[in-house]
Amino acid sequence: PTPPYLKWAESLHSLLDDQDGIHLFRTFLKQEDCADMLDFWFACSGFRKVEASDGKEEKKLKLAKAIYRKYILDNNGIVSRQIKPATKSFIKDCVMKLHIDPAMFDQAQTEIQTMMEENTYPLFLKSDIYLEYT
């Protein structure tokens, strides 16, 4: 069978589908000071998965606010700097108007994912951390 670390090189999704892959990628991103990008990506996926059943609404609102405050609000943060201004205003509007939608972070997540696919992921595959692991 193909060893996991070779699968990681196939696509970003293959890497993010493996616990050890995530761990190593996060170690690399931490070195580059951009681990928040990965955390944000997973936070968006997790947010989408919170069920919309009654009683969860308050939790969703709290979570949306937490994600907004931690990653989007600070314009100097690594995540905030990679997200388009229009996308940020959209999220801000949703939070301010308490309009909590499961897809409200989708566009921002896509932008961060594109950034990782074009930038940090290829760098990771060439990094000492990955090469030493293999």
Binding site: L16, D17, D18, Q19, I22, D39, F42, A43, C44, S45, G46, F47, K49, V50, K59, K62, L63, K65, A66, I67, R69, K70
Partner: peptide, 20 residues
Amino acid sequence: IDSEDDLLQECISSAMPKKK
């Protein structure tokens, strides 16, 4: 603020793949 961080951590973990 602590509970907000916990909520965020829980959310991040829930999206990660489970051990195979």
